[in-house]
C-alpha cells in the first residue's frame, strides 16, 4: 500500500476557533457546520478506546482508500463525539462496508438516502442514546454526533463529496446525522437485535441506506386492525424507491401503537405478512412508462399489484419513540441491505 495523502499528521499553524472553522471548511472536511479540532491528543483518546478492535477495514467507496484508525478517530473528534462513542461509530462503519449494503451505489445515487443507524442493546443506556421522545430529532449529543461521525468519514475518507461523487437531486437532512436507539423497554416484542440472532446482552448497530423518517399519524384507531390499515395505506406509495420489491424498509412503531397491536395479539411475523400484502401498490397507480421500465428489468406485478419489498421479512419492525399516537416509515434506497454489527468491547 502507498500513502495517498502525504502525511497523516498536518501542522496547520496557529488557528483560533473561527480561523480553524474557516480552514476546515476550506479543506472540504465539513458538513457545513463547525468542527472540533482533531488534535493528536484528542485522537489518541479515541484510538485508545478502540485498541481491542483489530479487524482491518476494507477500502471505503468511492475513493477506495483504506482508512487508518487515526483518520477515523479524527472524524469522530471533529463530529463532536465523546471517546466512548467511537466503538459505535466503528461498528456502523463496518455495517455500511458490508458488500450487500452497496455503499458506492448509496453514496453516488440521486436518491435522498442516508445511512440510518439503529442502536440496540445495553450500550444505548450506557451512552445515553435517545430511543424515546424525539429520538429522530435534535437535542442529544450521542445521536447527533455518532451519525455525524459516520457521515464525515464517508465524506473525508470515502470521498463522497456533495455535487461531485454524491449526486443526490435534493439530498436529505438525514445526511447530517441519522442515529437513534430502539425503545426495548416499551416494546411488547423481543428486541430487534435478538430477533436477528444476537444475544440480549450484545450491543448492536444496524444500518440501512434509508430516507428520512416519514410520519404515520393515527390518533383515531383503537384497534390493531385500524392501526395496520393506516400503516399499510400510508406506506403504499408508487414513488418510493423500493417500489416493485427492490429492497427493505423499516416500520418504527411508537410505543402506544405497539401496545395496541400487542394487546390485540399481533406478532412481528403476523404484522410483516399482513403489511406485505396490504401495502401492495395496484398497477393502476403506476404509470405506463414505469411499468414498462420495471418489466424490462424483470420486475412484474403479482396479481395486478407491485409489492414494496421482496419478502415479508424485508419489513423490519421495532419500537422507538415516546408518548403519542405516531409511528414512522423509513423506506430504503432499494438496492441495499440491512446489516447488523455487534459493537466491539472497549479497551
Amino acid at each position: 500500500m502507498s500513502d495517498i495523502e502525504a502525511t497523516e499528521i498536518i501542522d496547520v499553524g496557529d488557528l483560533d476557533g473561527e480561523a480553524w472553522t474557516d480552514y476546515a471548511i476550506a479543506q472540504g472536511w465539513s458538513d457545513g457546520m463547525p468542527l472540533a479540532v482533531p488534535s493528536e491528543a484528542a485522537v489518541e483518546r479515541f484510538t485508545a478506546i478502540a485498541r481491542g478492535d483489530n479487524e482491518p477495514f476494507p477500502p471505503i467507496s468511492p475513493s477506495r482508500l483504506i482508512p487508518t484508525l487515526q483518520s477515523l478517530a479524527a472524524n469522530a473528534v471533529m463530529a463532536g463525539c465523546r471517546p466512548e462513542y467511537f466503538p459505535v461509530v466503528l461498528a456502523a462503519l463496518r455495517g455500511v462496508l458490508t458488500p450487500d449494503y452497496n455503499l458506492h451505489g448509496t453514496l453516488a445515487t440521486t436518491h435522498p438516502c442516508a445511512p440510518m443507524l439503529l442502536v440496540s442493546g445495553p450500550i444505548r443506556r450506557q451512552l445515553a442514546i435517545n430511543y424515546s421522545s424525539n429520538c429522530f430529532g435534535q437535542g442529544n449529543r450521542a445521536n447527533a454526533t455518532i451519525g455525524r461521525a459516520l457521515e464525515l468519514i464517508l465524506l473525508n475518507v470515502g470521498g463522497a463529496k456533495p455535487g461531485i461523487m454524491d449526486r443526490a437531486t435534493h439530498g436529505s437532512p438525514a445526511k447530517y446525522s441519522f442515529c437513534f436507539g430502539e425503545n426495548e423497554e416499551e416494546s411488547p416484542w423481543p428486541p430487534y437485535h435478538v430477533r436477528r440472532g444476537f444475544a440480549a446482552s450484545d450491543s448492536v448497530v444496524t444500518v440501512m441506506s434509508g430516507e428520512a423518517p416519514h410520519n404515520i399519524n393515527d390518533h383515531g384507531s383503537t384497534t390493531a386492525e385500524g392501526i395496520l390499515t393506516t400503516v399499510a395505506q400510508t406506506i403504499s406509495q408508487p414513488g418510493a424507491n423500493v417500489i416493485s420489491g427492490k429492497g427493505p424498509l423499516f416500520i418504527v412503531l411508537g410505543p402506544e401503537h405497539a401496545q395496541t397491536l400487542a394487546r390485540d395479539g399481533w406478532t412481528i411475523e403476523a404484522m410483516q405478512k399482513d403489511l406485505f400484502q396490504r401495502s401492495r401498490v395496484h398497477a393502476s397507480r403506476i404509470s405506463t412508462e414505469n411499468q414498462e421500465s420495471y418489466a424490462s428489468m424483470g420486475r412484474l406485478p403479482v396479481d395486478g399489484h407491485y409489492h414494496l419489498t421482496p419478502t415479508p421479512e424485508d419489513f423490519h419492525m421495532l419500537v422507538a419513540g415516546g408518548p403519542g399516537k405516531h409511528s414512522a416509515y423509513i423506506p430504503s434506497f432499494g438496492g441495499t441491505a440491512v446489516c447488523s454489527v455487534r459493537v466491539a468491547a472497549s479497551a
Binding site: M1, S2, D3, I4, E5, T7, E8, I9, I10, D11, V12, G13, D14, L15, W20, Q27, W29, V37, P38, S39, E40, V43, P59, I60, S63, R64, L65, I66, P67, T68, Q70, S71, A73, A74, N75, V77, M78, L152, N156, V157
Partner: peptide
C-alpha cells in the same frame, strides 16, 4: 497546531 488528517487513507497496492 498539529492535527490528524481526517482524509488520510492508504491506496491498494499495484
Amino acid at each position: 497546531m498539529r492535527i490528524v488528517n481526517p482524509s488520510f487513507g492508504l491506496s491498494l497496492a499495484g
